[in-house]
Amino acid sequence: MRRVSKDQKTRIALTLNGRKLAAEAEPRMLLSDFLRHGLGLTGTHVGCEHGVCGCCTVLIDGVAQRSCLTLAVQAEGREVRTVESLAGADGKLNALQQAFRNNHALQCGFCTPGILMSFTDFLARNPHPSEAEIREVLSGHLCRCTGYAGIVAAIKEASSPKQVGIMYLTSTQSDRREPFSA
């Protein structure tokens, strides 16, 4: 049983984008704040802090979820992946990112990291979704700039059958994703 009292800063160890690391946080620290200001990865954005906008979405053990509705301490021992992990070390965009660029799927780009992470999870479970399924998952995100059309087109491109073989997510030992079901 893990116990942390409210004023106590505790060491939280996790795997972030494939690297084991740790930092201190009090129990009420939100994972979004912990990632951005504790661990210095500012690619995960915060747009509402009450679970609606979706721009804070990250993967925990492969599962896309709102980091503003997750406490840092809940991610202890887990594998967390953020948008910073998607491109290659040389900066080369992965297929999903490239499809976003190809289809003008972002303007200000503030909502984009969350959407990329949602579909990193979703396309790994369901590599060739229908447009309706894409829209269904995308409806968990708010974008104020694009009107969404470019985003839908990008995800269609990234999940078209000719993209077979692209792995969006290297599976992890602690992969907790459920198979997709409509």
Binding site: R2, R3, K6, R28
Partner: peptide
């Protein structure tokens, strides 16, 4: 906004 402080227990 940020939550008020609380103790955390994970049984």
């Amino acid at each position: 906004m940020k939550p008020r402080p609380f103790d955390y227990v994970r049984p």
